[in-house]
Every structure is written in C-alpha cells, then in structure tokens.
Design a protein around this nucleic acid. Structure first.
Length: 676
DNA sequence: TGCCCCGAGCTTTTT
DNA sequence: GCTCGGGGCA
C-alpha cells in the first residue's frame, strides 16, 4: 500500500533577520490614498495616479513594504518604461529598507524579456546567443528580404522599408493581423496586401534562421514561451510572485497579454498609470489597456491618487482645463495645497529666432532670481524644433543637454563598428555581415550577397574572404584577419574588441567622411562604454535595449557636474519635473502637428501630449509660439496658438507679446498685452 | 558590378 | 533639407 506523503515547507533563509514588525512608519510618510495602495493585499490592483501625485513615491514605498512584510526581494518584478527609472526607484527603496532592494528584478519589458529568453528560450528554438536588432537593423533586413523576393522592381508604389516595419510592428504589438492594420491605417497600400504578407513571413523566417530578434520579437517570443512551455511558465511565475508595472497607460495589448501570462498562478499584479498621459499610440499602446485592466483581472481593486504635489494651482487650472475636453477617461481632478504662484504665460514671438531669444533671455533672468539651470527645461513636440534654440543657447554660453532625437548609437559610424563585433559574436547575423562587407572597397550589394551565401555554408568563413582575388581581394583579407583574431579568443573583453576593430576601421572612416575627427570621438565614447562590460553579448544587448542618450556633444562637455538646462522632446520628459518649463512651438500646425489632424484618436493623443508637457512644471510655465511661420508641408502660414488653448479662458493665462528693444512704441494694436 | 549623380517624395514621438 | 531608389557610365 502506498504511503501518503505529507509535505512540510522549509522557509527560505532570509538575508537579514527582519522582524515582522514593519520598520517604516508608512502612515506618516504617505497620504491616505497612497497608503492604501502601498499596503494593498494580494490580488490585482490598479492605481490611477494623476500627474505629480506621487506615483513614483507610491511604487517605491510599495517595494519597501513588500520586502518589509517578508517578501523575498528576488520574488518582486518591477517593470518600468526605462531601465534608468527602475534603477532609481530601487535605489530609493534601498534608502528606506536597505540594500536588499537591489535584488529586486527591475527593468523594461524588453530587457526582462531579453533575460528570460536567454535563459528559457531554447524550448521555442531561441539560442541564448541571439542578437537583438534595433530599428535600423530590422529595416535593413526587411530591405534585404524585399529584394530577395524581387518586390522592389515590381512596383514603384511599394512602401518603403520604414513603412513596412511600422506596419508589421503595429500588427505584432496590437495582436491584430497585418491585413487589418493595412486596411485601417495604410489603406493606400491595401493592394499590396498579398506581397506584404509574403514579405512578413519571409522576414520572420530570416530572423529565426539567423538567430536575430527585433524589439517586437522579444515580447512576442516571451509570450510564445509562456504559452507553450508549461514548465518555463511555472518557473517564471514562481520566481516573480509580485509584479509591479509603472506607466501602464503606455503599454500595448501584447504587453498586457504578457503580464496576464506572468501572473496566471498568483494574480499579484499592481499596475500604476494615468490614462490622461497615454502618449505612445504610435507604438501600439492604448490607454484602453488601463480602462480594460479590471476586466482582464477580475476582482481588481482601484485606487486613485489625485492630490498633486508638484505644481501650483494656476498651473493645474490650466492643465485641468486642457484635459477636460478629452473624450474618454477615468474622471479625476487634480488639486494641490500650493495655492500661490505666477500665472502660466502665453508668449507670442515674431518668428522662430525671436522665440529662441526670448527663452535664452528669460532663462538668464530666472537664474538671477535664483532658479538654477538644472531646474529649467524646454520641451517640444519634435526633436528638430529645438535646432534654432540650440544655436541661440550656444551663442549666449548657456550649457544644455538634449534628450530624445537621434541617438549616438544610431549614427552610421557607430553602427559600422558594432557590426564587426556582432559578426564575431553571431556569425549567422547576415545583416551585420552585409554591412561589414559593403564597407570594403570594391564590394557592392551583389558581391556581398554572393560572399554571404558562401560564408553561411562554409565551415571556415574567413577562408572564404581570403579566397577572393581582384580589386576587393586585399580589403577582404584584412577584414578576415581582423575578425579572426577576435573570434580566436572568445573571451576577449568588449573594450579590447572595439580597440582592435577601430584600428582596422579607421582608414575606412577617413575615406568615407570628411568630418571624421568628430566621428572618431563618438567611437572613443563607445570604447568608454565598452569598458564597463565584461561580456560581449551583454554589451551588445544593453546597447540595443538601453541606448545611452546624448550624442558627441555630451562627450565634449568637460565638467559633468556643471549645471545644465534640459532640452527634451515631450515624450522623453515623461515622469520628470522642473521648477520652470518652457513649451515651444505651441502653434497650430506644429502642435498638434499637421499630420495629426487626420483622425480624432490622433488628435486626442496630441492633446494628452500637451497635457503631459504642461504638468511637468512646478512653478513657472511659459508657452511660446512664433507667428508668420511658413509650413512647407501644408503650404500654410502658421500664426495661431494651438487649438488646445481655444477653450482656455483668458484669466488662466498671462498673454505676452515680444517687442524689439527701441521699438516699444510700434506696438499699438495689442492693448491688453504686457510689454516686453 | 560598382559607383556616382540626380530626381522624387516625405518630413514625429521610442523600446 | 533629407534619404531612398533608379539610371547611366566606367
């Protein structure tokens, strides 16, 4: 007879002998709503956190609370929008509860997917050494596949690689079919539906075969893994018993699905977000995710944080007024105890340069009044909107850093150098091979293709390169020698690899670009970054997942701790705050931009974007718009403030018009303007 | 086949 | 103003 075996659970030894009595006085540190969210019990919860309502604080305390009440830190998963914000939060939690918080797993969806796939991916055919394609690489592969299918010759109206990527990505992220996306958002390409379908399949096949994953694949494959591999899912779900998600309004359906899978065994999910700040629809995000959360997780408790700790009441009045017009949202109304403060100002400038000069001058003035430079930010809709201002600031000697826009990692020379590292790390990576080969003198697309075909088959790929005679012979030999010396010692440090490739690549760089001194500085910077890593795969993955922002400009600046003001796209300013915020180009046609006027949904998104911009300010807020700006795209003359201000009553805003010094008298028309 | 030049078309936000 | 792709020439 079989004996019944009972189990007795041995508790895991905890790192510190934490007394079960809580060590922090939560009630004193938090307001009642925050406290309720922080001390919530098991099960799904949704925290609707208005702008500036202490969302981060709440998450930080929640992490501390969980650890404080005996949860092992390694059982907590904190998903955030950037890895930096995860690190900062864990750092702050560490200040409260001790360094055990550093054992919490924190990062972006993509970085966590990267880790899990390298660990468990084998069961769905993903080798741990896979390479991550960034946007540009992915597009290059699409172009390659497209020409292999002969689709570019066929028809002139075939979409470009970037557009194709966008369509495929949208379909993956929203869990909808390519045809559906095509009909809804790219109807002018609908006739190519069949070819695009073929292309998508071929693109996917190419990635699988070469062990390449693009950004979307990281999530798609993680979902796949969780769906088909029971044991992996059980392991992962047991590992992460408490899941916290920040910025939930900017997740898409694919991510929501991943979370649901991760939480199947325990349902301990707390998501935090603000539907009014959802600004990533172009990436497939939908604020409906946050509206639908309670349906996806039955039994959800909803918490609302409405007290704002950031801004003064005049700024909130404007913000509330802007978002009031939004069509669909969880109703909430921000309030604050900071009653006093200057009215936000709406500033009309005669042109772009007048706008720039106003900002530079005002910043100097504010500094006199005691507002430090690093408490000032200038925000804009699109990266290029700040070009003129950047020149003006340099002229006035005002130091700044710019966030958003072209990353240094995306520049051609950096990509060139990295392609060599990648070829060594993953010889199947034909995208990088292609790039590497084209750099050799005398090699064009055709020869590169032929060589690639041979390389993939060959046992000793480098011999293939050595066997070539003719014009490109010598160049290919050099390449082979360089790569082979790197491949020979697998454990070479990334920094050494960079140095070695640099020697080989420098002549090519000089040959290709007149401005090569500037570009070598970027490569030096790359070397510095590489020094921080001890493994090549990790180095490459991190560069793709968390590209260092800032370009060569930053490297040049000698003093790190010099106070600098921030220029940023509104997207990159999410979650941040400053004493003084300027929003520039608040002119109809730029903001909302002329492209976004198309659909109601897009217009709504622009409105939320504007709301995000306004709510970054603590005390001073300036909205500036140049007039008489000719817009090439629409052929229109832009002169009217953003339509989002149409319904704002005039007593919520100070209205200023700029007047050139010495011509103050010319301004007869605008009686109720303040003069400058 | 590789490379250079010219014309067309578009032009945002990011992991 | 840029990139992308096509066409023509060496």
């Amino acid at each position: 007879m079989e004996r019944e075996i009972k189990t007795y659970v041995l508790k895991r030894p905890s790192e510190e002998a934490v007394p079960r009595k809580l060590s922090i006085n939560y009630a004193a540190a938090l307001n009642p709503q925050q406290l309720a969210a922080v001390t919530a019990g098991e099960g799904p919860s949704l925290v609707i956190a208005g702008a500036g309502s202490g969302k981060t604080r709440t998450l930080v305390y929640r992490v501390a609370y969980l650890i404080d009440s005996g949860v092992d830190p390694s059982n907590i998963l904190l998903l955030t929008f950037t890895r930096k914000s995860a690190q900062e939060m864990l750092e702050r939690a560490g200040d409260l509860i001790g360094t055990s918080s550093h054992r919490v797993c924190g990062g972006t969806f993509h970085s966590v997917a990267n880790l899990l796939l390298r660990r468990y991916g084998r069961s769905i055919g993903i080798e741990p050494g896979f390479t991550i394609l960034d946007r540009g690489d992915a597009e290059d592969l699409i172009a390659l596949v497209r020409s292999q299918l002969g689709l570019n010759e066929k028809d002139k109206r075939f979409p470009r690689k970037g557009t194709i990527m966008e369509m495929i990505s949208k379909s993956e992220n929203t869990l909808r079919s390519l045809d559906e996306i095509l009909l809804e958002e790219f109807s002018h390409f609908a006739d190519h539906s069949e070819d695009l379908g073929r292309l998508q399949k071929a693109y996917q096949a190419a990635k699988r075969q070469k062990q390449l994953l693009d950004y979307d694949d990281l999530l798609v494959m993680l979902r796949q893994l969780l769906l088909v591999d029971e044991s992996a899912r059980a392991n992962i779900s047991r590992q992460y018993r408490y899941i916290l998600v920040d910025e939930y309004q900017d997740t898409n359906r694919l991510q929501a699905e991943v979370i649901r899978q991760l939480a199947t065994t325990h349902q301990n999910v707390m998501v935090v977000g603000d539907d009014s700040q959802s600004i990533y629809a172009f990436r497939g995000a939908t604020f409906k995710n946050i509206m639908d959360f309670p349906m996806l997780f039955p039994g959800t408790t909803v918490y609302k944080l409405e007290e704002n700790y950031r801004s003064t009441q005049p700024i909130l009045n404007l913000a509330n007024c802007i978002i009031e017009e939004a069509t669909e949202k969880y109703t909430k109304r921000l309030f604050t105890r900071k009653i006093d403060g200057p009215l936000p100002a709406l500033v009309e400038a005669a042109g772009e340069n007048a706008q720039s000069r106003f900002i530079a001058q005002k910043i100097l003035e504010l500094r006199e009044e005691g507002v430090p430079l690093d408490e000032v930010a200038v925000l804009f809709r699109s990266s290029f909107h700040s070009f003129d201002l950047e020149i003006e600031l340099s002229r006035k000697g005002l130091p700044f850093i710019k966030r958003g826009g072209v990353k240094f990692i995306e520049t051609a020379h950096v990509k060139d150098l990295l392609a060599h590292v990648r070829v060594v790390s993953n010889p199947l990576d034909t995208v990088s091979w292609h790039r590497v080969l084209l750099l050799v003198e005398g090699v064009g697309p055709k020869k590169a293709q032929d060589l690639l075909a041979a390389i993939v088959k060959a046992e000793r790929p480098f011999d293939v390169l050595r066997g070539v005679s003719g014009r490109s012979g010598q160049g290919l030999k050099n390449l082979a020698n360089t790569l082979e010396s790197l491949a020979g010692s697998d454990d070479r440090q990334p920094a050494e690899q960079v140095t070695h490739i640099y020697e080989y690549y420098l002549p090519i760089l000089k040959d290709q670009y007149d401005d090569y001194p500037k570009r070598t500085r970027d490569l030096d910077h790359l070397h510095t970054i590489a020094e921080g890593y001890h493994g090549v795969d990790e180095f490459l993955a991190d560069l793709a997942l968390e590209p260092p922002d800032g370009s060569a400009v930053d490297v040049e600046a000698p003093d790190r701790d010099d106070e600098r003001l921030v220029l940023s796209t509104i997207h990159s300013a999410k979650g941040l705050e400053w004493q003084c915020v300027f929003v520039i180009w608040v002119v109809d046609g730029r903001f909302p931009s002329a492209y976004s006027v198309l659909t109601d949904d897009e217009l709504e998104e622009e409105r939320r974007l504007f709301y995000v911009a306004v709510t970054r300010a603590k005390r001073h807020l300036f909205l500036t718009y140049p007039i008489n700006v000719y817009d090439k795209t629409s052929g229109m003359l832009l002169s009217k403030p953003s339509r989002f201000l149409d319904h704002v009553s005039s007593d919520l805003l100070d209205t200023l018009a700029l007047v050139e010094e010495g011509r103050e008298g010319d301004w007869g028309m605008a009686r109720d303007h303040h003069y400058y």
